[in-house]
Design a protein around this nucleic acid. Structure first.
Lengths: 242, 242
DNA sequence: GCAGAGGTGTGATGGCGGTCACATCTCTGC
DNA sequence: GCAGAGATGTGACCGCCATCACACCTCTGC
């Protein structure tokens, strides 16, 4: 066990206590043995770029700790966030499987650990163990679902207000367990900047500021630093038609 | 060999002449044998709905002939087209793999043949043959790529003009081989209605009409029925920043 | 040939939200 | 405590495009 950036490093996949709860890592012993032998564990600082959109794939990353941001950028510099990846996800998978450039840029949100597997090793791994094929299918399925949700959000919303209300309600699915002033308040921890929320909703930073201000003035939400409270969930739900 | 709707029916996957060119079907003999035994071949009229968004998955469909339209609809009736599926694609895959409702509605564009495989059979098929896992990974990868392209189109475009120019240029990748009046003209066969183009671009039918009219008046395109000509590709490219 | 349905062209109108500009607030490191 | 960077709040402006309305065009079936 070593540590850097105040991270607890997971050296060994076979003894990893998180394994069973994670999308990709819960594999049978033989597959894990093989994985253990070919992976290269690294620790990255906040803001590290694991994959670069448009670059030829070197391999895939299994994210062990903390979250990462997947984004894509247009020629004129506009960026849109595709999704956030959780620990236990494989990143760069589409590129490795189809041997095409990375679809998205992957950036660590905080200091993170990830296991790197070269494209060659990964494809052999996938060929050899049918359980790996199953996990890969599940990961890709998850990616598709997220992408479809994004398409629905971008293409079917009638307004930015609606998209942001939708985001808030999505986040409310995983609330914090904080002491509440009122029983129907929902507490959230939001570490995104308004700029990032804008990139999630496909809008501008200023509009996010205005919409959130509007929600605050209506008493639907309260924001204090990274702790947000949803005070009037039904009002937000009434905005959402998707 | 039977026929209906003027379709040439492919009864047997093992002797199918298209197999090698298709995304899913090019499997080793043992897998094809198994597939042949569990598939249920059907012929559908134009406009048939193979999968219904939000419904529990019954199984997956392998599209044998003609194309199908994948779309998703919001509560207030707005529809967006996710992509068009080609022969040899598996449809309803995400739903079957993750045992969640169908993500999209699948509608045949013309009379089509498809092979149905029940969810149970498909999952067993996937477990048993690692080649199937590989094909499934490729199909899901393709779905992801298409979805990401759609996200980029919807989220990063600066205008509807840009999105429509992008569509035209995408279609120009697969031109018709027609006698050309000028060497740099590109001939296309476009069977979509303006309504469908609007659903692809996430805009309204009227705007599509206006933008196409604008392109026509500028001499960038020519439209005669389902045969379209791109006359000034560079002009269209200059609109696209993605 | 005619009716009806579906597809397309086009004007008028109004609002949402992008953009620019700048003030203010908050955090971080030294 | 201070400087500087980054994040946020807010006003002004205006252009794109959604929407409504309606004419016209092009099929198809009878």
């Amino acid at each position: 066990m070593s540590s850097a950036y105040n991270l607890h490093i997971i050296e060994n996949c076979l003894t990893c206590i998180h394994r069973e709860n994670r999308l990709f890592c819960n594999l049978p012993k033989e597959a894990l043995d093989a994985l253990q032998n070919m992976k290269a564990t690294s620790v990255y600082p906040k803001g590290a770029l694991l994959c670069l959109e448009g670059r030829a794939p070197r391999g895939a990353f299994i994210l062990c700790t903390r979250r990462a941001k997947l984004s894509t950028t247009s020629a004129d510099g506009k960026t849109i966030i595709l999704r956030f990846a959780e620990p236990g996800e494989v990143l760069g998978l589409t590129a490795v499987v189809s041997n095409t450039p990375y679809e998205a840029t992957v950036e660590t949100l905080e200091p993170s650990q990830a296991n790197f597997i070269s494209q060659q090793d990964f494809l052999r791994f996938l060929q050899e163990y049918s359980d790996v094929g199953m996990k890969v299918a599940q990961q890709l399925t998850h990616n598709c679902k997220c992408a479809y949700d994004e398409v629905r959000s971008l293409g079917l919303s009638n307004s930015v207000r609606e998209k942001i209300a939708k985001l808030l309600l999505d986040w409310a699915q995983h609330p914090l367990e904080l002491p509440k002033k009122k029983p129907d308040e929902i507490a959230l921890r939001v570490t995104l900047t308004q700029e990032e929320i804008a990139q999630l909703a496909g809008t501008s930073r200023e509009t996010v500021s205005r919409v959130l201000g509007d929600f605050k003035s209506k008493g639907w939400i309260r924001i204090k630093g990274a702790t947000w409270h949803i005070l009037n969930k039904p009002a937000l739900q009434k905005l959402v038609t998707i």
